[in-house]
Amino acid sequence: MYTTDQYEGMLAETVVIQGANGDTIDAYFARPLGAGLFPGMVLIHHMPGWDEWYREATRRFAHHGYAALSPNLYERYGHGTPEDVAAAARADGGVPDDQAVADLAAAMRYLRALPYVSAKVGVFGTCSGGRHAVLAASRVAGFDAIVDCWGGGVVMGPDQLTPQRPVAPIDYTADLNCPILGLFGEEDHSPTVDEVARHEEALQRQGKEYEFHMYPDAGHGFFYYHRPSYRQAQAVDGWEKIWTFLGRKLAV
C-alpha cells in the first residue's frame, strides 16, 4: 500500500539491449530508486507501436515497485514516429514470432542480470503484446507470471498460420510453466469470447494455473484512455487485478 510519507524515486530512460540475432534494440526502462530487490517486468507494446502509452505503463509499473523494461519490437523497421514505424510493421503482418520471442527473452535476461532485480520476472502485454506474452512465456523458461490483456491471435485456425506466425500460441500450452492472468472484453473481435473460452479450456485441460476475467461492456483496448475503447470502471478494476496478481506471483 502506497502512503504519502513514503520516499519515492524513479529512474526512467532508454537503454540498449541485444535482441534476436544479436541485433541491438532500444528498450525503455523504468525502475524505482534503491537497492531493491525489485521484481522485474517485461512490457510488450501493442500493435500501434512502442508509443507514449507504453512509456507511461512502464513508469507505472516502476511506481508500483517493479523494474520494468519495454523493448522496441519494431526496431528493425527503423525510426520515426511510433505510428509510422508501427504502420511499416503492420504492412508486414507484424514481426516474426521467433524474433519477438528472442527479443523478449533478451529483455528478461537483461533484467535478471541486474543486481537490484529479484529472482522473479513477469511479462505484460496488450493486444499483439498479449499474444507475444503468452508465446514468450510458453517457449522460454525464466518468466514467473504472465499478464495477457486482450491478446488476439492466441487461438489461430490453420488458415491464419503464416511463415511469420507458424504456430498458434495455444498449441504451446503444455509448455507453459507460470501462472497467467487474462483480462478481456466481451465486445472484442480479437480475441472473441469463444476464443478466450477455448484458451481457458486448454489451460484447464493441461492443469495450468490461470485467472481469466471477461468484462461486460468492454471491447479491445479498454485501458487506452486516449481511445474511444476506454472503459473507466473496467480499467480501474483490471489494473487492481494486475497488482494483486503480480503481488502474489512475483513476491520478493
Binding site: 520515426g80 514516429t81 509510422d84 504502420a87 511499416a88 503492420r90 473481435h189
Partner: peptide, 18 residues
C-alpha cells in the same frame, strides 16, 4: 476498433515517408 487503412509509402525512404 478496426478500419480500412491505406498507407501510401516509399519504403526506401524509411517509415516516415508515409
Amino acid at each position: 476498433e478496426h478500419a480500412l487503412n491505406i498507407d501510401f509509402v516509399n519504403a526506401d525512404q524509411g517509415p516516415s515517408a508515409r
